[in-house]
Write a protein that binds this DNA or RNA. Structure first.
Lengths: 200, 200
DNA sequence: ATGTTCGTGGTACGTTCGTATCACAATGAC
DNA sequence: GTCATTGTGATACGAACGTACCACGAACAT
């Protein structure tokens, strides 16, 4: 049976199984055996490709962040041909909302990792936890461009708005995730905020 | 040794021990034995006053929500003597930021509970998860008052602003919690947003 | 052809967890 | 003074967890 196998591919498959299982059981409750069953392999194999559970979790976080990054850039690029920076900004902010199952999963697990990082210093040391910095820089730049082009209302501070909008998007995402609000009302609030920032 | 004991008081003490232990170890990692040790009692006693771990967690969540509610209303009342509704709104939003150890703890654990509620329907059924609804109603009312008094810039939608501000406050709180931003910059962003809403 | 490495399965070990059981001392009721 | 109830301790139990160990078949190198 044992053909030569692509380790990277195998690890990715298992990481995806971890993500699925964690979405079902919660990240705190998922065990090596759950991941193995979800991936359709034996417990031993999960051990083989990831020496420890901690390594599996770390890889899973990286995988998740990577997938999400691709998703966001894909959305932004899809909106990139549109007229102005507003479409790009909208795409950036909307991509973070848990509107479909994939983004729900992402939000759920990313928040789980964030909570874990409060008490787990190994997790806290991972750069992905502070990946939002990149989003902040990007969004600030986009708003600055818009401001330079005279698209924003006077007196708008691009950086303060960028930080505020991202925090709002994250907060709205969480409230959608826990079922406190539906996705439509969250997008409506974001649209309202953009209307407020952009010149009428 | 066994004097007659006030159950409610005892349960509160143990719940506080749970909160402290969970703050140190993370809610996912805290066990009955940890809570017992933190409270300085035997494992048996934790079992005695809470029949199961689930009941302990539920009570802990209620306790936490109660404490936080008191904190917010105390802050709001302290600002209530001030001139206008802006001070009250500011107090409401700022109270949610993890500026000191108590509010850090609250944010940490409340987020932990929220994450758990995604996969635990018993937790999701607790009304405290959607307690923010109350804050939303209150804040909408305050903004409406301010609008009626002519304090807000024209075209401001009280409800949309309330939802947005609360989400922003929560999002900023999380980013402060995970060390991505410091409390000062978070409050600065909130102040900027209020300046934007209120008439100059 | 042979030996070494690689992929895989099965399974056992030690720990920890939540819970249950047994015992008993101190209290309040009568 | 007797007795049932209440609060408390110590400890045991079964399950689940992460990890380690052992065995073996297939593939590649030489």
């Amino acid at each position: 049976m044992p053909k030569r196998v692509d380790h990277a591919e195998r690890r990715t498959e298992i990481a995806q199984a971890l993500v699925r299982a964690a979405g079902r059981l919660g990240l705190h409750a998922v065990g090596m055996r759950d991941v193995a069953a979800e991936a359709g392999v034996s417990l031993r194999l999960v051990q083989y490709y990831f020496e420890s559970k901690e390594k599996l979790l770390l890889f899973g976080l990286r995988h998740l962040a990577g997938r999400f990054g691709e998703r966001v850039t894909a959305r932004v690029r899809a909106a990139g041909d549109s007229p102005g920076p507003r479409a790009v900004i909208e795409a950036l902010l909307m991509a973070a909302l848990p509107v479909d199952e994939e983004s729900r999963l992402f939000h759920h697990l990313y928040t789980s990792y964030a909570v874990l990082s409060v008490t787990d210093e190994t997790l806290a040391a991972q750069p992905f936890i502070k990946d939002p910095d990149a989003a902040e820089i990007t969004l600030t730049g986009l708003l600055q461009q818009a401001a330079d082009a005279g698209l924003l209302r006077p007196g708008t501070d691009p950086h303060a708005e960028a930080v505020g909008l991202l925090a709002m998007s994250a907060g709205l995402g969480t409230s959608v995730l826990v079922g406190q609000r539906d996705a439509e009302s969250a997008t409506a609030v974001l649209h309202y905020q953009l209307d407020r920032i952009f010149r009428p």
